[in-house]
Design a binder for these strands. Structure first.
Lengths: 337, 337
DNA sequence: CTGAAAGCGCTTACAG
DNA sequence: CTGAAAGCGCTTACAG
């Protein structure tokens, strides 16, 4: 119960206490064989009595490995990023890797600074969870240490591994769901200029074209304008919107409700990402779901392979559509009771 | 542009390249004085050419310090925890500390396991963001390394620093807001059995008593029962509820709306924590706000002091109430247009 | 201002 | 099965 912060016992102290050489202690505490059962017990006992713990720096220095992975996310406040982190962490548990997470604040400079700091700790690999990470920076790092990006930045160098969802499929699911309900005037609400958002935007256009539908003439860049268009009651106002992400879908619904437009009676809305929030809000949000934890697990697995010498891959996972109450037929009948 | 992963250059390589001794390289790269300007330039140049980076393990080993802080949170998915992490990270930036975050999954065993792993990396201090961390475990760790807890576990040992908000004040603000609007039948919806929730529950009772009001007879433990009571139209049904946290407030509102009870017309609701979510939902949630980033910054500051030898303190910060649209006078008139 | 030496705490061959 | 020695890459006194 005494304060153990002062002289931290070393392998040398344990050796003296147990009356053996340092080498033996090293073997014994690591559970290697080559130590007699009795001796081992005596050593472990001494280590325990002294409160011995292996010094991580000495160990890493001599072994040249840290058993450590750094994960950098754009923004921990996003449930998307957090779930990916969970996937990475859980997968790391089973491979005896320790993961250290840091947050890039959706800011290139902050991300870079935090990345450098993590790098200075000597991780064996890096996972970057970002759809907009700087390709040049990633190239620099990926040449120094194995690196996997979860998300969909453009121009990623071949040295970097990649895991992302198929945005084409996701947005296609959203559009098909709306047309199956009977919608024809379907607008798209774009998100950021990020590559993922761009892919969704394109898929929206392509799917509408395949279905013989026109893209909704004005694709307003902001929710407020879209709500105004619907509120005007014009004959060509959209009856449904597929959004580039949940965040903007939530904003759209908020503004629609504020303007007295019922959702889904006057406007059906589909989100993308299926954040926790989607199920809790009212109306609960129909949304495209990415298998986020799986993506995190895939990232860690690929990273482990790369650490082992494998080269980078490009993995694409398939999203699904989760139906809730923000979508209904255009006449206003609710989809479910 | 070649792959730098193989032979990583050491101080020795730089010394040879620059034609000086290793000691000089050490001084030069750390920016210490005692090196001539010319020599220094030559050394830095050589280091740059070779892509030299100081080996963190060797440095930590010899200095006995890692400049590293580990932050363990109960659940990164909670916006509360994430904001505290942001506060810690930003504060750490200015003290040249690197912070490594890990997630305890709201599970004692997971938390303990992750904590041990982080500890094995040799951080100089620990921040635990948890309102329910195991006191005995915290005691063990706090005796080995400086530790600060953000949150309000019970029975924390004196070795551990602490930062939390004043739950008494927060809940009092909520109740007073409701009585100022004219509510008299005010119920409380408890959260978990955590100490913070218990403190809020007590403060609710004390404040009601001070105001000469009765605690609402049945304090239903679950949102569904509360909604049923209000829906019954009974004369003593509550007209307002102050919730132990936002999460349960959101659930309550969802269930109320599902049951056709308008919020705030039929039921006013106040949350606690002011998560991002609170502003985005409809009706937007009136909620008690804790200065989360400040709390994180305080935690890091206190930890830095403890690393410097100071003893643990107990800091309490004051919450505020953020007014939104989920509360209104009991007659149903909206509080704002 | 500069260099040679010792040592941080561990692991890893290598002898016995 | 056990011990003595070298070395991981750095920093820190200590001489010159």
């Amino acid at each position: 119960m005494k304060d153990q912060r002062e002289h931290r016992p070393t392998i040398h102290d344990v050796a003296a206490e147990a009356g053996v050489s340092k080498s033996l202690v090293s073997l014994a505490v690591r559970g290697e064989n080559g130590v007699g059962a009795q001796t081992r017990a005596r050593i472990l006992d001494a280590a325990d009595r002294l409160g011995y713990r292996s010094n991580p720096w000495a160990r890493s220095l001599v072994r040249g490995r840290s058993q450590t992975i750094a994960v950098l996310v754009d923004d921990l406040r996003s449930g998307y990023h957090t779930d990916v982190v969970h996937g990475v962490e859980d997968a790391a548990d089973s491979s005896a890797m320790t993961v250290m997470v840091a947050d890039g604040r959706r800011d290139r400079d902050v991300l870079r600074a935090r990345l450098e700091r993590m790098l200075a700790l000597g991780p064996e690999g890096i996972v970057i969870v970002s759809g907009e990470a700087d390709a040049a920076m990633i190239g620099d790092i990926a040449r120094r240490v194995p690196l996997v990006v979860v998300g969909r930045p453009t121009d990623l160098p071949p040295e970097a591994g990649q895991v992302h969802n198929d945005d084409r499929v996701g947005m296609r699911l959203a559009v098909h769901h709306l047309t199956a309900l009977g919608h024809r005037r379907i607008a798209h609400l774009p998100g950021s200029p990020r590559p993922a958002a761009a892919a969704r935007r394109e898929s929206y256009g392509a799917t509408m074209a395949e279905l013989g539908l026109e893209e909704h003439a004005a694709v307003p860049a902001d929710p407020q304008a879209l709500v105004a268009a619907v509120g005007s009651g014009s004959a060509d106002a959209p009856t449904a919107v597929c959004c580039a992400n949940d965040r903007i879908a939530v904003e759209l619904i908020g503004r629609a409700l504020d303007a007295g437009l019922e959702v889904p009676a006057r406007l059906s809305v589909v989100g993308y990402d299926n954040l926790d929030f989607a199920a809790q809000m009212r109306p609960a949000l129909t949304s495209v779901d990415q298998p986020r934890r799986t993506m995190g697990a895939f990232a860690l697995q690929q990273l482990a392979e790369m650490i082992g010498g494998a080269s980078a891959r490009h993995e694409v996972v398939t999203p699904t559509l989760v139906l809730r109450d923000s979508t209904a037929p255009p006449d206003g009948r609710p989809r479910r009771s």
